[in-house]
Design a binder for these strands. Structure first.
Lengths: 190, 190
DNA sequence: AACTGTTTGTTGATTATCCAACACTGTGTC
DNA sequence: GACACAGTGTTGGATAATCAACAAACAGTT
């Protein structure tokens, strides 16, 4: 499935992604030049063009990757088995924690305004497929519910960032809290 | 003088050096294999051998580089002009701060026992060339003095590490303190 | 409008790294 | 001793990244 990447490719893409996110924390994508991006990443400009067509393309790829990861995590998510579920939540939290800066940047002023929407879409699809399976819900309720949950999640992430919450210190407790909330939320529907 | 290095070479050597120092914080040089070193650095083993012959060679190069840097800093050191001197001390402190982990590792149990000696030699040569210029000192005094100063410096570095002193927060005050001490020490000799 | 400096894609030749394979040495185990 | 196992150094061919150079587009200045 996932073809084995040459170390060089892996490294080049990694630093380019990191550099773009760093620059995005300072200015809007349209004000970022390929030149400064490559200088920051310490990568030859010609190399950049063998991977991406421009800044926008790179940003696209970054977000696609996140989307894939989120889907990956959410696809194996289930609230049936308690312990397994907790572990999944924990992993998801660690994933986010490791990319705190990235999320912060992409969700803030200079970031992509469509990014939050994309996250919302992913979560919405997940909720429809898993949580709300079997439930007979009006479409209005469904939309409202997913919007509510995702907004909450984004809000939580932003709060973590603002108050510099160290998720890693207690991912377990955090995971329990979140799962409990999710379950109670579900039971409230019945 | 300093030949222009290909970015790739620069990167390869950088990660290999970082990885070795990291490993040295865990075990002795003789227990470190080239294989695990390359795995940590994410560099092909064959690439390693195009740069260094073995772990010991790499460690050698790391220490040589530090020695060069220290010489560089110390060579442009003078206590004649007050402000300039302070700036030099400040830069030197920042240099050490940026490599705190490296110094810590090289000076500790797993590190190279000869490293402290090398530092001592450098400082000794410096003191003879600069500070003690013109002073009529017995060789015994000279050796004792340099040993005293370097031991002090190493001790200070180790204390910074242990008590996690943030040198960067006040390199200026720190620099003033050190220069003042150095000057008083010198005047004590007269 | 001409001028200056900067960024942009793109190219060709060069170089470094990768990878997989190899034979070799050392070390521990039955 | 015979055996498996892990690390060593070295090789050759494939591939990626480098660098320097280019024409073109663009923005700001005078």
């Amino acid at each position: 499935m996932s073809k084995k990447l040459d170390r060089r490719k892996k490294y080049t893409r990694k630093v380019l992604k990191e550099s773009l996110v760093t620059l995005l924390s300072q200015k809007t994508i349209s004000k970022i030049t390929v030149k400064e991006l490559c200088e920051m990443a310490d990568v030859n400009r010609s190399t950049f063009y063998t991977h991406y067509s421009d800044q926008y393309d790179l940003l696209e790829k970054i977000e696609e990757e996140i989307a894939e990861d989120m889907n990956q995590y959410l696809s194996s998510y289930s609230f049936n088995v308690e312990e397994e579920s907790l572990q999944m939540t924990e992993k998801l939290l660690e994933y986010i924690k490791d990319r705190q800066f990235m999320f912060q940047t992409l969700l803030n002023e200079n970031g992509d305004p469509t990014f939050e929407v994309r996250l919302r879409t992913i979560a919405q699809r997940f909720m429809i497929n898993n949580w709300l399976e079997g439930q007979q819900l009006k479409e209005v309720d469904m939309t409202y519910l997913s919007t509510f949950v995702v907004s909450g999640a984004v809000h939580v992430i932003k709060e973590w960032i603002e108050y510099d919450v160290d998720v890693k210190q207690s991912p377990k407790e955090m995971a329990e809290l979140i799962n409990k909330f999710a379950n109670e939320g579900l039971s409230c529907l019945e």
